[in-house]
Design a protein around this nucleic acid. Structure first.
Lengths: 223, 223
DNA sequence: CGGTGGGTTGAGGTATTTCAAGGCTCGTGG
DNA sequence: CCACGAGCCTTGAAATACCTCAACCCACCG
């Protein structure tokens, strides 16, 4: 509940990446900002929009009745999220930090896809890419040790957000833990262990800035 | 490597269910049989076909280099599996018991989808349904206790294959364990615990025939 | 009948969780 | 400007859920 800046026709930002085929289409795009911690949509809500992170970071998660949480994915700048074929959101999405997103009305998307094979293909490719991520994550959650999970997490984040050699993690230890199916203490201990082995270094005092000192050795830990 | 019975034009079985829109299409369909334990396709192989279980059961899994295994899904009669948008299989698939499958050439499918919006929609719906299953399974693997996992498994199987009040599981304890991210002993103990609580009963000596005596109580355990 | 492939159960071990304490940073308000 | 509390992170010690190892049972089958 913040500012809603509509991107007028003179400033039609492209829905980047996988939605290349949509760049020319008539779609109502608008920007929206969420404060750190704000809910973007809730699980089981009607999926009215599809989102793309412009700046910031988002977590998508499911809750059990007693509060246990499983984060299914983190969405970083450029990522598209909230795309639901079934029309209902299957995760809750929250801004991890102050975040700007672009949105598209879902109905218009589905409508376009019916007539435009390129858009239909994009939709399928994105869903398939989400599926691949989930499949890999099942293996991690079901069969990897805490150290392997944290190593895999670091490699994923390194691939997705390292700039100038340092990884500035937007999420706290608890988020990482809920993504990896661990507790925040176990994540902290695994990071300390990797630090002690000389595989990674910390930059600030905040421990959110991580430098990969030995990527090959980290990759060895990720089976 | 067994008998290959081609379903001639006079006997063109329908690719059931989600592929309703394909029932009339010109697709090369054929049947194939695999012995218990036989590999249907391997992870990272080129995805040449899409499969449908006619009779029997199939497990799809990933392996870590040291042999740890995560089963991503079981495929039972009627289920379609091996559908890959990327063109490469991301699981190994094996027959759990002697199994008959129907196959479609993948290329022809993709070809049809380009021109037929209905087929494209089916493809998307199936991928989305696989995604939903994987998302739910992430929650189970990341956050549920062993008892909750086994309860969830039983409810899933009950929904999918109970006939005449009894669930005839095609898979062994190790398969269940690798599906749930547990060991076979833990699965066995959880089943015994549910038996002791009067929630389920066994039929044969083989312990593969399960009767749900108290579905509501089981559902309580699946959060 | 002996062997093999499940399955169960017990005892002990261990990776991870739980509980607890302490440190650092930062924002707010006196 | 400093004190204070809240949020986040780390670390230690104790508890525990699950795993590992092992024994045993039963059904099936050549």
């Amino acid at each position: 509940m913040f500012v809603n800046l509509n991107a007028g026709p003179s400033n039609r930002p492209r829905f980047l990446g996988e939605f290349g085929s949509l760049s020319q289409a008539e779609l109502s795009l608008s920007e929206f900002r969420y404060h750190r911690g704000a809910e973007i949509f809730g699980e089981a809500e009607l999926a009215e929009y599809v989102y793309q992170v412009i700046d910031g970071a988002v977590r998508s998660y499911k809750l059990l009745s007693d509060g246990r949480r499983q984060i299914g994915a983190f969405h970083l700048a450029g990522d598209i999220f909230g795309l639901e074929t079934g029309g209902v959101h299957r995760f809750t999405a929250e801004a991890i930090v102050d975040t700007a997103v672009r949105l598209v009305k879902r109905v218009s998307l589905a409508h376009v896809a019916e007539n435009d094979a390129a858009v239909a293909r994009d939709l399928l490719n994105m869903t398939a890419s989400n599926l691949k991520h989930a499949e890999d994550h099942m293996l991690l959650l079901g069969r990897k040790t805490s150290l392997e999970r944290v190593a895999a997490f670091l490699l994923e984040m390194d691939r997705r957000l390292t700039a100038a050699g340092v990884m500035a993690l937007p999420m706290c230890r608890r988020d990482i833990a809920d993504y990896l199916g661990l507790t925040l203490e176990t994540v902290s201990r695994a990071l300390s262990a990797l630090h002690d082995k000389g595989i990674l270094g910390f930059l600030g005092q905040t421990q959110r800035q991580i430098v990969l000192l030995d990527r090959p050795k980290l990759a060895e830990l990720d089976l």
